[in-house]
Nucleic acid binder design. Structure first.
Length: 729
RNA sequence: GCUGCUGUAGCUCAGUGGUAGAGCGCGUCCUUGGUAAGGACGAGGUCAUGGGUUCAAGUCCCAUCAGCAGCUCCA
């Protein structure tokens, strides 16, 4: 007999072979039906395995995982991945199984297959999956020793599994498998008792991947993504959420509403801010700038390029070379010599090529007569470097700090003027891998809302507190109030960090103190800090629950050292300041991209590129009064246009609604006669006629208080079918 | 960067090796209207680019460029 303790504390006795499923059945049939897996000693396990096999504890603390538990969802999805793999093997011969894990909201399975699986094939695979689910065959676990397991996988012709046992699982003496009908997979589990527990699933996409994530090895796999749920309703809600996210895609909305443009003509990852997008950005920048001034920042400007030496000193140029635009040389031979050095250093230069480079450099005007062709690699590199140092080399700046450091150094600093806070909307260029580019969210030219604070170690805490307040204030202005902070700390066991132990301790506890004191949700990530200092990243949740990593605050003990920054302390001696990098919103590109998705393109009044549209009822009779209203609104500081097309007012309203203009002023005979306007709100519709002054007061109040109204539609039903625009925003 | 998919009018997309299409938008004209689509006519294309196969290529093949999804990366 075994003793089992349930979460309510009750103790029960069961025969030796009892499984979690048996326990559930002993409590009730419906519970057994709903039981998907079990939790013993905090780990999720198969419900169909004998409990005695899983734990030696007396009693065994058992928690049944039912369709209500999130852990159960993961188990079921993993089983669904097996079902999918089984179905794929039925449809396509010669499938090599790789890995099929659970991910957020679903699962995937990586498979090797010569033939490309296309979305058109999903239907057939899903049909097979349905048949498998309907047959509701059990998942059966069994174990094999290493040798048996290897020959078993070889028999099954699953070469990737063989390799995985040999490499990834080299230390496992015994390997577990799950059998479901004709399908057997090397797998740690756990799984659901039988396939019938999968109530709803759908294949979502297929994409390329690599064996063990190693692209260099060049072993391509196909990754099939799917989702699965315990009810059709949950799945439908999930798919609707996905659809909602897709509908908000800033790349689509940005094009539709003329906010920004990224084209091949201009260059990959290089964003053009169209007038309307520039307007939104301008409002945000003005707003942030005003805040910075109020908080004691000094705005500065710096050029878009800087001498390479700056970034060599900072250490970034060599380290991030691959993700930077190539340096600019004023000498024709610059690029050539640069490539030459890199080839030498990589040891990838043959004698013949070296001779050719020498001649070419000479043709381009670099005197290589004294080049030590017979010398060591170091001697040759140093000859070239010496020449390079006599040349001007520039870099499109990949970050603003070196320039700001130079501004700090432009005069001697006293402790009395600290902290020095230098702020700039600084545009930087990074040559991101082409596959990483994504609309405005990942670009190659971006403008950071950057600032560098130079302060003493005891000022760090206050500076961090101020930055948090700034972030809070600005995020509130755009209706974002759900965010958390990821605090990255050092791993005290490692010695890769610069800066004194004492400074780190002090800084880390300062950051933690401030976070505690603000009551912000935060998590500590030990070992995630940069080598030069701890950092705090802001994770913001938008109105449909997606999390965005926006800004960051980073302490830096490295650059002050490398650039030999100093200030004169009260003791009349030189001290090294601490430097704080902070870009609370990351980049304007990313922030505005996120806002487009957050607002689904419908910006609040204070940010809307076009705030008001005047709609004359009759184009020829009311054009004069409309022009008068337009002028009045413009003189009150609103961004306003007038729709002078000879269309019906209904049609003009429809267009303005679809263009997400916050307010429409309908003007006709009545309004012209009485000096009023009929106000239509994008959200609430017709507000009726009112005196112009009242309309102005109302809109001004909304804009000045930066009110954010109706960020998200509560119901998704409006998006179904063709009538998607009905009363939408 | 790697893998897969895609590239046709300003936008969204049809298009079977044999004459280039639709809806929306745009222009002109008619219409002058009261809170989500008035009507007629019209313009608009080197089918991403460059090669190839073929009597014939938007369609098939190769390369390049770009986009999308994923992988890998992100100071």
């Amino acid at each position: 007999m075994i003793q089992v303790q349930l979460p309510d504390g009750s103790l029960h006795e069961y025969p030796d072979e009892t499984t979690a499923l048996d326990v559930a059945a002993s409590i009730g049939e419906r519970l057994a039906m709903a039981t998907v897996a079990a939790e013993i000693d905090g780990t999720t396990v198969d419900a169909m395995r004998p409990l005695a096999e899983l734990s030696d504890a007396e009693p065994i603390a058992l928690r049944l995982l039912t369709t209500r538990d999130p852990e159960a969802l993961g188990v079921m999805r993993h089983s669904c991945a097996h079902v999918m793999a089984r179905a794929v093997m039925r449809v396509f011969p010669g499938v090599q199984l790789a890995f099929g894990p659970t991910i957020d909201n679903g699962f995937y399975y990586d498979i090797g297959l010569d033939q490309a699986i296309r979305e058109e094939d999903f239907e057939r695979i899903e049909q097979e999956m349905k048949a498998i689910v309907k047959a509701a065959e059990p998942f059966e676990r069994f174990h094999l020793g290493r040798d048996e397991a290897l020959s078993f996988c070889e028999e099954l012709d699953q070469g990737l599994k063989v390799e995985h046992i040999r490499t990834g699982l080299a230390e496992h003496e015994e390997l577990s498998f799950y059998r479901q009908g004709e399908f057997v997979d090397l797998c740690r589990g756990p799984h659901i008792p039988d396939a019938g527990r999968i109530k709803s699933f759908k294949l979502l996409s297929v994409a390329g991947s690599h064996w063990k994530g190693d692209a260099a090895a060049g072993r391509r796999l196909q990754r099939l993504y799917g989702t699965a749920w315990f009810s059709k309703k949950d799945q439908k809600a999930y798919l609707e959420r996905m659809e909602e996210a897709r509908r908000r895609d800033h790349r689509v909305l940005g094009k539709q509403h003329g906010l920004f443009s990224i084209t091949a003509e201009v260059g990959q990852g290089l964003c053009l801010w169209l007038p309307k997008g520039a307007s939104v950005r301008g409002r945000l920048e003005d707003f942030i700038k005003a805040e910075l001034l109020a908080r004691g920042y000094d705005p500065v400007y710096s050029p878009h390029v800087g001498r390479v030496e700056l970034y060599e000193t900072s250490g970034h140029f060599p380290y991030y070379r691959d993700s930077q635009f190539a340096p600019l040389f004023t000498h024709d031979a610059g690029q050539l010599v640069d490539g030459w050095i890199r080839r030498l250093e990589a040891g990838a230069l043959g004698e013949k090529d070296e001779q050719a480079l020498r001649e070419a450099a000479s043709v381009l005007g670099c005197d290589t007569a004294a080049y030590p062709l017979q010398g060591t690699q170091d001697e040759r590199v140093s000859f070239l470097r010496h020449w390079e140092l006599t040349q001007e080399r520039f870099l499109l700046k990949p970050m603003n700090c070196p320039h700001h450091v130079q501004i700090y150094k432009s005069q001697p600093r006293s402790y009395r003027e600290l902290p020095v806070r230098l702020a700039e909307f600084g545009t930087v260029y990074r040559h991101e891998q082409s596959g990483e580019l994504n609309g405005m969210l990942r670009v190659r030219g971006l403008t950071q809302d950057d600032a560098h604070q130079f302060c003493t170690a005891d000022q760090v805490e206050q500076e961090f507190r101020d930055t948090l307040e700034l972030v809070k204030f600005v995020l509130a202005a755009v209706g974002l109030d759900d965010y958390r902070v990821q605090l990255s700390l050092r791993d005290s066991a490692s010695d890769k960090y610069v800066g004194s132990e004492e400074n780190w301790d002090r800084a880390e506890s300062s950051l933690r103190n401030v976070l505690e004191e603000t009551g912000l949700e935060y998590e500590e990530c030990v070992g995630e800090a940069a080598f030069y200092g701890p950092k705090a990243d802001f994770m913001v949740r938008d109105c449909i629950g997606r999390e965005w990593q926006l800004g960051t605050v980073q302490l830096d003990y490295n650059l002050p050292e490398r650039f030999e920054l100093e200030y004169i302390g009260s003791d009349n001696r030189a001290h090294r300041p601490v430097m704080i990098h902070r870009a609370p919103f990351g980049s304007m590109e990313r922030f505005v991209g996120m806002l487009i998705e957050h607002f689904a393109g419908a910006f609040p009044l204070w940010l809307a590129p076009e705030q008001i549209r005047v709609l004359p009822v009759s184009e020829d009779r009311h054009a004069g009064y409309a022009a008068q209203m337009n002028e009045r609104m413009a003189s009150e500081g609103f961004r306003v246009t007038t729709d002078l097309r000879s269309a019906k007012v209904q049609s003009k309203i429809r267009d303005a609604q679809l263009e997400l203009i916050p307010y429409m002023l309908v003007v006709g005979d009545k309004e012209a006669a009485e000096g009023t306007v009929a106000v239509r709100d994008r959200i609430d519709g017709d507000l009726g006629m009112m005196p112009v002054d009242e309309a102005i007061a109302r809109l001004r109040e909304e804009a000045d208080s930066r009110q954010v109204r109706q960020v998200v539609k509560s119901s998704f039903s409006a998006f179904e079918g063709e009538s998607q625009a009905d009363h939408e925003y």
